[in-house]
Computed example of a mutant assay.
Amino acid sequence: MIPISAMSAESSDPAFILARPYRTVIARGVGRVFESAQEAATTLRRGEVTHVVGALPFVPGAPVALWSPESVSVRDTGYLPATPAQPEFEFDAALPEPEEHVRRVGEAVALLRDPEHPVRKVVLARSIRARSAHAARPVEILDRLVSTDPMGNGFLVDLSTAGGRFAGRHLIGSSPEILVRRDGDEVLSHPLAGSARRDLGDDQADRKIAETLLGSAKDQHEHRYVVDQVTEVLRDRCTEVTTPTPELTSTPEMWHLGTPITATVRADGPSALELAAALHPTPAICGTPTATAAQLIADLEGERGFYAGAVGWCDAEGNGEWMVSIRCAELAADGHSLLAHAGGGIVAESDPAAELAETTAKFQRILRPLGISLPVTVA
């Protein structure tokens, strides 16, 4: 069993929180620790534990952060953040520098335009590191993110059970993307792919941006890869799968193309965790074909850890919800360093400069609530 000294049951702060507009899940303490999603799902099916919470990494097969909590609260209300002082972080570094990200995107576009290359879409990301003279508590950062999100979305996961460099580290974010949710026999997956930065200073211009996104052949192309794969996975495991046409979804910073895909599952059918493991990683955060795109990401970008993985919970009845871990940052064990992530889907029609600007816009979901300003040379 993995040492979990960093996740003491006596800690005053929860080790896991998933905040949604209609439900809040808060877990404390650590019971049984799992080494894979399959082990966790099997243990739930046997009734040996009542709940599993935690996070899946970007790369399937890498160490997971999944455990059965000693206590869990599931409330059918939104999360009520406290009003702590804003954590004081300042920009430290761009990883990689913007020019390097543009170069990587350009290299990917060149490959995607090669008819002999197997990859049709790949998602590339970059990171921003910020530092604070004062140690920040994970829940303080979560409270800032939730309180500044109109939908009240947020998540917090202690990554310690993954072991190694993740001991004491937390993944904190405000994701708008539902990988999968199961309530009884009802299943929903709401993938987002295809994005545009909003203009909140001009309603007419903002609406024009949304309409342009909805009519964009490039973004519809990117979105289609995701919808097709999610639909195929659900059809293999569920019945009555319904895939509507893409619609607009908004966050405070971005417009997205989204498709709410619904399905029906038998009572003894796959649990929310099993569905999440089957769906992840989708082309929305990896690419297509999955394995080849993941290798291209590793070659161009390096190791992602839990960014672009999934965060969520599941109970012994199979109910639960898993969000794609985007719009997030990893807080160091000492609370002094924060690493935020943002990415974008790259297809043959992508423009590298526009892709850089898209990541800058997506960073704001994390940086703006924490008062972190990007230098002009980075943005």
Rank of each mutant, 00 (worst) to 15 (best):
I178M: 01
V324C: 06
I141V: 15
Q364E: 13
I366Q: 02
I297C: 02
T259E: 03
D183A: 10
T245H: 12
R32Y: 10
D13S: 15
P252N: 13
K362M: 08
P96A: 10
G201E: 12
L111G: 00
V53F: 03
L145T: 14
P84V: 13
F89P: 04
G184T: 09
P87F: 06
P63H: 08
G312R: 10
A210W: 01
I141E: 01
M151C: 10
A361L: 05
P375N: 04
R46V: 06
A62G: 01
A284N: 05
A332Y: 08
P289H: 00
A284K: 06
S11K: 08
G269H: 02
E253I: 05
G287W: 01
G194H: 00
A94M: 07
I297L: 05
E355F: 12
E321M: 10
L213M: 00
E253A: 15
E321N: 14
A196S: 11
G335A: 10
E317Q: 11
T264S: 14
P260K: 08
A329T: 07
K208C: 08
A162L: 04
A342V: 07
T359G: 04
H256V: 03
A267F: 07
V230H: 01
A196H: 03
A329H: 05
F155V: 05
R32A: 12
A55V: 02
D143S: 08
G215Y: 11
P87Y: 05
T249G: 12
Q38P: 02
T259H: 03
P260N: 13
P87N: 07
I366K: 00
L192Y: 07
V187T: 02
A277P: 03
A93T: 07
L80T: 13
S160D: 08
A272Q: 10
I372Q: 10
T251D: 11
P260F: 04
W255F: 13
E211R: 04
A41M: 07
D143W: 07
A94Q: 02
R131G: 04
G154K: 02
V59R: 12
R137G: 11
L192P: 01
P118C: 01
L145S: 05
E211Q: 13
A125V: 00
V233I: 15
F34I: 09
G106S: 14
G29P: 09
D13V: 11
D185Q: 14
Q86D: 15
G302A: 06
S216R: 09
E240H: 14
A19W: 07
L338S: 07
E222S: 03
E70P: 04
D228G: 11
H341V: 15
R266L: 04
P84K: 06
E116H: 09
A379T: 09
A196P: 03
D351W: 02
P283K: 01
G164R: 10
E10N: 09
T243W: 06
V52M: 03
F363Y: 14
G371D: 15
P81E: 05
S36H: 10
D206A: 03
R237M: 06
W313E: 01
V123G: 00
P3Y: 08
D183N: 09
A308Q: 12
S5W: 14
A342N: 05
R207I: 02
P60A: 10
T282R: 02
E39A: 14
G343E: 08
P14T: 13
G335E: 09
G106L: 09
S11I: 06
L44D: 00
R197I: 13
E303A: 11
A342M: 11
I128Q: 12
V102W: 05
R207V: 03
S68C: 00
